[in-house]
Design a protein around this nucleic acid. Structure first.
Length: 676
RNA sequence: GGAUGUGUAGCGCAGCUUGGAUAGCGCGCCUGGCUCCGGACCAGGAGGCUCGGGAGUUCAAAUCUCCCCACAUCCGCCA
C-alpha cells in the first residue's frame, strides 16, 4: 500500500490547525478543502464561519488570529486570511520533490487498499443469446467493464459475470429456424454469426406469430385467412376487420385482434424489405417441413426446461453460437467476462424450485387465478428493506408474477436463484448488477424477493447499477430486436473508425499496419470515453463525429497529450534515478506546479470513483490533466531549459504525467498509442 | 395515479453525496501566437444562465427541506 500524498498534506495542515486551536482555545472541527479553481487564494483553504460562530468571534478577525499563530510547516509556504477563509499556499519546492519522487518510485501509486479483501461481482451486458448485442446493452458493457477495472485498482478481487438468458420462448423460436437452415444447408456464410441469428430469430418469430393468429381465428371463428399460414397480407387484415364487424364481436376484442394482426403485418413488412432473399429462404424451409411452430416452439421450450438430452444439445449449441458472436464483438472493444452463468443451469439445479418453495413457506405467494404472484409489499415490511431500497412507506410496490397461469416460471423467480448463486457460489461480498433503467422496478422486486426467501444478508450485498438509454445520432430512436432495428457495437465501431481515419490519420505517412493499430486504439478509446464521460443517468446521444473531434472532451485529445509527452522523452535517454531527487525542487513555475499538484489527486479520484460508482470522475480528471500538460508544454521548454537540473526535473515531470495518463486511461480500458 | 430519473449559456456537459469566495469546462464566435519538444496546441476577448418555478433553513444555497412544472422510462402472465 502506497501513501496517499494528498491526504498526507491535508493531515499535515490539519495538525498545524489543531495546534492553533489548542493554543487559542477554540472549539469546532475545521475542514480543509481545495480552493475554488479560478482563485488566487492558494492551494487549500478552511472556511471559518462556523468556527467563528461557535466561538463568538468575527470571522475575519478570527482568520487573522489563526494565521498569526499558525506553526511553521515544511509543506506550507504561506498562510493568509481573506474574507473569512484561511488560505494555505503549499511550499512548491518541498512538495514538488516529495510528490514527484513518490510518483516516480511507485508507478501504481494510485492504487489503494480501500476494498482489499472484498470479492465483488460485476454483472454486465447479459444480452439475450438470440442475436447481436445492441448499443443499449453495450453502454452497460462499458460501464461494467470500466467499473470492474476501477474496483480492482482499489484492491478488490473482481469478477465480471454474463448471465445467459437461454430460457423463455424466444430461444426455441430461434433454434427451430436455425436447425432448419442447417438441415437444408442454406446458411449464409458472409455474415457474422450473432447477426445472422438475430435475423433468423426475427423472421422465424414473425412466422410463429402469424401461425398463432391464423390458428386462433380458425378455432375461434372458423375464419380462414388466406392460403399461406406463414404470411399475412394487407388484404387479409382488411378481410379480418370486415369479418369482425359483421359478427357483432365486442368492440374491444375487435380492436385487440386487429391491433395484433396489423402489428405483425408491420413487422413482416419491415423485415421483408430489409432481407427479402433471406426471408424467402427461411420461409421455404419452414414450408418444406410443414412445421407447426405453434406447437413446436412450446414443445421445445418444455423439453429444454426438462433438460431432455437432444433438446438441451440443440438449444445450447445455438446459444453458444450466439454468445460466440457477441463475445467476438465485445473483444474488439477489449471487453471480456470471467464467468458465464446459464439461466437453464439454475433451473436444472432445482434452486429455482427451492426459491419458490421458500417463498411459499414464508407466506409471500399470492394466488391470482392460476398464476402466482410475489407479495412485494409484505416483503418490504421486512426489517431494513425499505431503507435499503430507498422506498417511502407510502409506496405500494406492484406485485410481479412469478409463475404464469400455464405453470411456466418467469425470469424474476430464476433471478432469485441467480442472486443467491452470486453470493453463495462465488462468495461475493458485493454484487453489482449493471442493468438499464427499464429494469429499475424489477431490480427492487428482486431484492425484496431475496429478502423474502430469508436471505437478507444476500440482499444487502446487491446493488443495481442503473443507467439511461443510449442512441445513435441520426438513427431510428426505438430499438427492436423483432424488427431488426438496432445498432450494434460493431456498427458503432466502424462508423467511429471512419471518422478517426478521416480526421486524424489521412495525412500521416505511417506504415499501413501502424495506421491500422493507431486507428483501432483511438477508435476504441473514443467510443469508451464518450460513454464513460457522461453521467450514467443522462440520456446519451452517440455522435461518431463528435467523439473523435479535435478539441473536445474526448479520448483522442487526452491520447494526443500523451503522445506529446512521449515525443519529448524519445529525444533523450531519460531514466529516473533517485539521486536526481533534489532537482525536483526547481519546479516552481505556475504551470509546473499546477501539474504537480494535479498528479497527486489521482488516488483520491480513483477511490471516489469506486465508492460513488462514478467512472466519469476519472475521465474528467484525465481531461484536466491533459489540459494542464498542454499548458505546461506551451509555456516552458523541457529539452532546452536554462539549467541541467531544470531539464532533468521537467523531464521527470513529463515522464510522470505521461505515465499517469496511460495508467488513468487503462482504468477506463483505453490504451495509449505511441504516436498518432 | 404511483415510482425513478433528467432540467445549469446557442449547443454538449461538470459541479449537488459532504452548503463556502466571482457557478466551471468544451464546442461555436472574435483577436493574437510556431526559425516548435509534431499547432490535434496555447493566450486573450466578446457573448451569454432567474442553475425549470416558488417557498423555507442558514452568516452562506446550483448544492439541504417542502410544494409545483416540463420531459423520459417503468408499473401481473416476454426477458
Amino acid at each position: 500500500m502506497t501513501q496517499n500524498l494528498e491526504t498526507i498534506i491535508i493531515e499535515d495542515i490539519q495538525s498545524g490547525l489543531a495546534k492553533v486551536f489548542k493554543k487559542l482555545n477554540l472549539t469546532g472541527k475545521p475542514i480543509i478543502q481545495e480552493t475554488s479553481k479560478k482563485s488566487s487564494f492558494g492551494d487549500y483553504c478552511t472556511p471559518i464561519f462556523q468556527i467563528a460562530k461557535e466561538n463568538r468571534k468575527n470571522p475575519n478577525d478570527l482568520a487573522k488570529l489563526i494565521i498569526e499563530n499558525f506553526p511553521k510547516l515544511n509543506s506550507v509556504e504561506k498562510v493568509s486570511a481573506e474574507g473569512g477563509f484561511v488560505n494555505y499556499e503549499l511550499n512548491r519546492a518541498f512538495c514538488s520533490r516529495l510528490f514527484l519522487s513518490h510518483i516516480l518510485a511507485n508507478e501504481k501509486f494510485y492504487q489503494s487498499d480501500l476494498y482489499k479483501g472484498q470479492r465483488i461481482i460485476v454483472e454486465h451486458t447479459s444480452a439475450n443469446p438470440n442475436g447481436p448485442i445492441h448499443i443499449g446493452n453495450f453502454r452497460g458493457s462499458i460501464i461494467g467493464d470500466t467499473y470492474a477495472r476501477i474496483l480492482k485498482a482499489v484492491g478488490a478481487e473482481v469478477f465480471t459475470n454474463f448471465y445467459v438468458d437461454d430460457l423463455g420462448h424466444q430461444i426455441p423460436v430461434l433454434v427451430i429456424g436455425y436447425e432448419l437452415l442447417k438441415k437444408y444447408d442454406t446458411i449464409p456464410t458472409e455474415i457474422k454469426i450473432d447477426h445472422l441469428l438475430g435475423r433468423i430469430y426475427a423472421i422465424t418469430h414473425t412466422m410463429y406469430d402469424i401461425q398463432k393468429i391464423k390458428k386462433k381465428l380458425k378455432e375461434k371463428y372458423s375464419l380462414v385467412l388466406g392460403k399461406d399460414c406463414n404470411w399475412i397480407t394487407k388484404e387479409e387484415v382488411k378481410q379480418l376487420e370486415a369479418f369482425l364487424k359483421n359478427k357483432n364481436i365486442p368492440e374491444d376484442e375487435q380492436k385487440k385482434q386487429l391491433k395484433q394482426s396489423s402489428f405483425i403485418l408491420n413487422i413482416q413488412t419491415d423485415i421483408y424489405k430489409k432481407f427479402e432473399n433471406f426471408y424467402k429462404i427461411l420461409k421455404t424451409c419452414v414450408e418444406k417441413d410443414d412445421i407447426d411452430l405453434t406447437t413446436a416452439v412450446p414443445d421445445l421450450n418444455r423439453r429444454y426446461m426438462d433438460n431432455e438430452v437432444d433438446a438441451a444439445k440443440k438449444v445450447r449449441a445455438t446459444c453458444e453460437d450466439a454468445l460466440r458472436g457477441q463475445r467476438e464483438e465485445l473483444a474488439i472493444l477489449g471487453i471480456e467476462h470471467d464467468n458465464y452463468d446459464w439461466e437453464a443451469d439454475l433451473q436444472w439445479s432445482g434452486k429455482v424450485d427451492t426459491a419458490l418453495k421458500n417463498l411459499k413457506e414464508n407466506g409471500f405467494l399470492i394466488e391470482d387465478g392460476k398464476a402466482r404472484l410475489f407479495d412485494a409489499n409484505k416483503a418490504a415490511d421486512l426489517k431494513g428493506a425499505r431503507e435499503y431500497l430507498k422506498m417511502k412507506s407510502s409506496y405500494e410496490i406492484p406485485k410481479p408474477i412469478l409463475v404464469t397461469s400455464t405453470g411456466d416460471t418467469l425470469y424474476l423467480l430464476r433471478d432469485i436463484a441467480y442472486s443467491l448463486k452470486k453470493v453463495d457460489h462465488y462468495s461475493a461480498d458485493k454484487v453489482f448488477n449493471v442493468i438499464g433503467k427499464g429494469q429499475e422496478l424489477s431490480q427492487r422486486q428482486l431484492n425484496l424477493a431475496v429478502r423474502a426467501v430469508g436471505r437478507e444478508d444476500a440482499a444487502n450485498k446487491m446493488w443495481h447499477l442503473n443507467y439511461e438509454f443510449i442512441e445513435l445520432q441520426g438513427a431510428l430512436t426505438s430499438m427492436s430486436a423483432r424488427r431488426l432495428q438496432y445498432i450494434t457495437p460493431l456498427e458503432l465501431y466502424e462508423k467511429t473508425r471512419e471518422a478517426v481515419l478521416e480526421n486524424f490519420l489521412q495525412n500521416r505517412d505511417y506504415p499501413q499496419k501502424e495506421k491500422d493499430e493507431i486507428a483501432h486504439i483511438v477508435t476504441v478509446g473514443a467510443i469508451k470515453y464518450s460513454i464513460i464521460a457522461i453521467g450514467l443517468m443522462r440520456k446519451l446521444l452517440f455522435n461518431p463525429q463528435e467523439v473523435v473531434s479535435l478539441s473536445n472532451n474526448t479520448s483522442p485529445f487526452i491520447q494526443y497529450a500523451y503522445v506529446r509527452s512521449q515525443n519529448i522523452l524519445a529525444k533523450t535517454d531519460f531514466s529516473w534515478d533517485k539521486k536526481h531527487e533534489s532537482t525536483l525542487e526547481s519546479l516552481l513555475e505556475d504551470e509546473e506546479w499546477a501539474l504537480v499538484l494535479s498528479l497527486i489527486k489521482l488516488p483520491n479520484i480513483v477511490q471516489n470513483a469506486a465508492e460513488q460508482i462514478k467512472p466519469e470522475l476519472i475521465s474528467s480528471y484525465l481531461f484536466d490533466l491533459a489540459n494542464l500538460f498542454n499548458k505546461f508544454y506551451d509555456a516552458h521548454r523541457v529539452l532546452d531549459a536554462a539549467t541541467k537540473d531544470l531539464i532533468t526535473a521537467r523531464l521527470a515531470l513529463t515522464y510522470a504525467t505521461g505515465k499517469l495518463i496511460t495508467e488513468g486511461l487503462k482504468l477506463l480500458g483505453i490504451e495509449s498509442p505511441a504516436r498518432m
